[in-house]
Design a binder for these strands. Structure first.
Ligand SMILES: [Mn+2]
Ligand SMILES: [Mn+2]
Ligand SMILES: [Zn+2]
Ligand SMILES: [Zn+2]
Lengths: 117, 117
DNA sequence: CAGATAATGAGAACGGTTACAATTTGGTAT
DNA sequence: ATACCAAATTGTAACCGTTCTCATTATCTG
């Protein structure tokens, strides 16, 4: 299952992943895919993001720590992104406002070179 | 409808907004709330964000241009946030990677002073 | 092998959202 | 005022991704 995720270069939905596994001949139920994905997400072994339409997308990330993504809206290809400055900015901003238990999400999207046109 | 959104200090779901309007005595259908919210969102008169669970939340924002939010996960209270540096960072990063039609989302969340405990 | 325990998965249920057909509303012409 | 038409509104059904249920299957343990 992790391997199938790893094989894909972009984010996959639970249902796409399920379809992929079935095509490979694995007899796995959709419920199991959801259950396992939840565990993987809870233990930070995969990243989760939400489409504009609310669907959850999953990806096995190369970077293991906290990071963000630059993603093509058309083909789904993803590059990982990080910036200590931006991390510091987000955290200190929230702290100054009296917030605790601070987290943040940053997603940069666009059309990649291939998909542009 | 916009007034009801404005009266709330945080983000509201479509169903919360519907309930609020009904409590105020307005006889409005849920479908209409969804339809009007969609129009308001399409014309950038309200901001939309997605909960971790996928639910859409709407807010009439004070700032009219592009900006981001610092939001309390518990009570939903929101402060608006912007940073020219971070905007520039996101855009130039994507541009360097060959992306066009670039956009981004940034959401900072935590527990506000009141809710911390 | 027997029994206990955990993982699995088909299908039902759920919750937010959207589509649709029917009704109401509002305006315009007669 | 009345007839007519177009647009807005509405309840309800359908939709879709996700979660729950629980019977079945696999895995462990002695
Ligand atoms: Mn990643
Ligand atoms: Mn805002
Ligand atoms: Zn692309
Ligand atoms: Zn709070």
């Amino acid at each position: 299952m992790l391997e199938a995720l790893e094989a894909s270069d972009g984010f996959l939905s639970a249902q796409q992943l399920h379809a992929t596994l079935r095509e490979q001949g694995q007899r796995v139920g959709l419920a199991t895919v959801y259950n396992r994905l939840r565990i993987l997400a809870d233990t930070h072994q995969v990243d989760v993001l939400r489409t504009e339409s609310g669907e959850a997308l999953y990806r096995r990330c190369g970077a293991q720590g906290h990071h963000h993504h630059l993603r093509c809206r058309r083909c789904g290809s993803v590059q990982e992104v990080e910036s200590a400055e931006v991390e510091a900015w987000a955290h200190s901003l929230a702290k100054k406002a009296g917030f605790s238990d601070i987290s943040h999400t940053i997603e940069i999207t666009g059309l990649c070179e291939k998909c542009h046109g």
